[in-house]
Design a protein around this nucleic acid. Structure first.
Lengths: 200, 200
DNA sequence: TTGATTTTGATAGTAGCTGTCAGTTTGGCG
DNA sequence: CGCCAAACTGACAGCTACTATCAAAATCAA
């Protein structure tokens, strides 16, 4: 689903991909080493051996180099592929299991580093929250289709908003065990709790 | 609870309050007239007849002049005052009714303008999301006390996160009727939906 | 009125980001 | 192979949010 039939992977494309990956990796490394705010775009560009203006050609903002994500579209595809008889919450849980299960350990490790960084930098959390608005929009559309309602339906939107909030809640740096948190477990547990009606 | 026994409201304090109010009002007006991004702090300061550096002495960031809020502490106090036999969700609904009901029409009108502005400016939505993290933290503590659990309890935190997300969902500019949305109704409806276990 | 404290404005500086604009590299095609 | 159009690149200038400092002015307490 990520490549169209006639996909010219010429030298140009490969070079672009390499530059992009280099920027991301050096950025992540520098952020972890000396902090997000203390790292300037100039330093990242220098480490990746390009000019600062080139950085902004690949990533519109400094935040985006961390937030750029390639699992979301996969997850949405997986959600859509869930059997129709599942309830939205059930389908969501199945999706999480599927997507996380299919991740290689390398990809997952990268993802974990991202999460830790985002959770610890308020600026990134804010940007992530913004992104979640769009994701909630998409989720609302898919849920609407699944249950045969309009995407503008109040309860459908509320459902999507609640899921979004649950995800944000898991990002709260406080309250989660430090070290190497395994978000795979947390997400499933939170969804299960929601499925039972949030008993307290 | 906002004033200590011996509260000297001298000329100094009054002037400060006036300056603060002037900054807020002119900022809101300018944002509505020419947009948030297109309005500079310098313009706001000039309209309120102070220097730009004075603006930052009253509000740490440009966002804060919109986000500064005085109903949150009232709402938390009201939540704490709810009868102990109510479930967290019931207490929350009662709080909303109480607080919104006690608002004067003027205060409510100002609140409505704020909400509309925040909903329409991504930057403000992001900042508001950040603030909701702190609010969720406080909510978690109060809920924990209410149900006799630890504030770090996973399900308590999940509850707080979900409530936060619900609030964010209501801020999504799309999907809400334009014009003069009455958030009082929406919040209660969303809470009721949650109370029923998010049926779809 | 005097002296302490607070508030204020001016100034200078940093960083993130946006634009422009020429110089170079690249891929496609005759 | 060689040319052209397109894309990529890097340098520069500029804007705005925000910070830090410091002396002048206003306010308060005695």
């Amino acid at each position: 689903m990520t490549s169209s039939p006639s996909d010219h992977v010429g030298l140009r494309e490969r070079k672009k991909a390499k530059t992009r990956a280099a920027l991301r990796e050096h950025a992540m490394r520098l952020f972890e080493e000396q902090g997000y705010a203390a790292t300037t775009v100039e330093q990242i560009a220098e480490a990746a051996e390009v000019s600062p203006s080139t950085f902004f050609r690949y990533f519109p903002t400094k935040e985006e180099v961390v937030l750029a994500d390639d699992v979301d579209p996969i997850a949405f595809a997986a959600f859509q592929a869930q059997p129709a008889e599942l309830s939205p919450l059930q389908a969501l849980r199945a999706t999480i299991t599927d997507v996380f299960g299919a991740m290689s350990e390398d990809v997952w490790e990268w993802e974990r580093r991202r999460q830790v960084l985002i959770a610890s930098v308020p600026e990134l959390r804010a940007a992530m929250a913004l992104r979640l608005f769009d994701l909630a929009e998409e989720l609302a559309e898919q849920v609407a289709e699944r249950v045969g309602r309009d995407a503008g339906d109040f309860e459908v939107r509320n459902f999507a908003g609640v899921i979004m909030g649950m995800s944000l809640g898991l990002m709260s740096s406080k309250g989660l065990p430090a070290g190497q948190p395994d978000y795979r477990v947390f997400v499933d547990r939170a969804l299960a709790h929601l499925e039972e009606g949030l008993p307290l």
